[in-house]
Write a protein that binds this DNA or RNA. Structure first.
Lengths: 198, 198
DNA sequence: CGTTAATTTGAGACCATTCAATTTCGGTGG
DNA sequence: CCACCGAAATTGAATGGTCTCAAATTAACG
């Protein structure tokens, strides 16, 4: 959808499906930097900064709305409320990155994955996708690994351990959270950083 | 300087000295999320979001300017250029976080530290602090460790390995980059993400 | 100088990786 | 509907990078 180094001419909002942002290292390894669910801006920052510093890919069949950069800037100039909302959107984005730094920097594999699952489940719930602790979750284990800084093999084993403890159920692209409280605890999850309290 | 959960009433700009932002995990571990040098905003995002989601600490004796949140917002409303500049400032912040996710997520200890040193050296150079590859660098090895997701012990050994290869010199709070190109290569460093090209 | 913080060193343990092989799953064509 | 295929998930065993714990050395500072 967007390639690193590319000049931004428009901004896109994800309407349906999942998307993710990633960076590729010189040795071919990759790190997934964020995962996006419907209704989220996926490259607002590129629109403002001008040059993309990372790639954006769609995860499954997805649908986006592209807004010309100029139109967006014009809107921002004329509507203070919209402008502030967009700024806040990018700031929450930023807050999530900070938490991800913590996640990959200081948590062990179980906590990393539990934390990521908590975050996504909560965000999905908040946007009304999925309910009763059941969500679409189209990430492969390899993608999950690249998002948590682990290998696919170890991600597999860690997921098994979370399943064994009856914290989650994950198969066929469907995630079911069986024990919210425990999962939160394992993932050291505190949602303050999502800045979602209304 | 700022404590997690605290309501923001003012924004601060760092005038002298270093500062850093950190998050403390429930088990007491900590992750340093960013390091700030003079002339940078250290909590603009808190000013806009309202609640701090992390702590900010000063590293050495430092000096800051505190701007009342209301005054800043007022300025933003009346001066489009300033407003955009502030937005861009927070976006570059965000871009740096993304790179840090990659750094702690997918690079080994040598690369992590080399990358961090490259980033800071470049930022210091750009703001005119230090020259000839020589910079103030007041981080202790423990803080360096918390910024790279390593332990202090391993950070020590890794620094020794970088010194042994004549890439850097680091002691008494002074960093000297001896071989820019090699250090860049070891750290897999590409400055695009700093968005500093003028 | 004395005291505490910071750095350095050593050895052993462990979490996560690597490499390779096997099994399961989802989709496709005959 | 079954056979087939590639992708994804799973398993095993060995390796290795980083951690842990503890002690020694050096630097910083009043």
């Amino acid at each position: 959808m967007i390639r690193e180094g590319q000049r931004a001419t428009e901004c896109t909002v994800l309407l349906r499906g999942f998307a993710y942002r990633q960076k590729i290292l010189s040795d071919g390894d990759r790190q997934i930097i964020s995962i996006h669910i419907p209704s989220e801006f996926i490259d607002l920052q590129n629109g403002i900064l001008g040059t993309a510093d990372h790639n954006v890919q769609s995860l499954n069949h997805s649908e986006v709305a592209a807004i010309p950069r100029a139109a967006l800037m014009d809107l921002a100039d004329r509507r203070p409320a919209v402008r502030l909302a967009m700024w806040i959107d990018t700031l929450i984005d930023s807050s999530i990155f900070r938490e991800w730094v913590v996640n990959v920097g200081r948590r062990d594999s179980r906590a990393r994955i539990a934390h990521l699952l908590c975050e996504l489940a909560l965000r999905l719930e908040r946007t009304g996708v999925g309910r009763d602790g059941t969500f679409d979750f189209p990430l492969t284990q390899e993608q999950l690994a690249d998002a948590t800084g682990l290998t696919a093999v170890h991600t597999n084993r860690t997921l098994q351990s979370l399943r064994r403890d009856n914290l989650i159920q994950l198969s066929n692209g469907i995630l079911r959270v069986l024990d919210w409280e425990k999962l939160r605890e394992v993932g050291d999850f505190d949602e303050l950083y999502l800045h979602q309290q209304i």
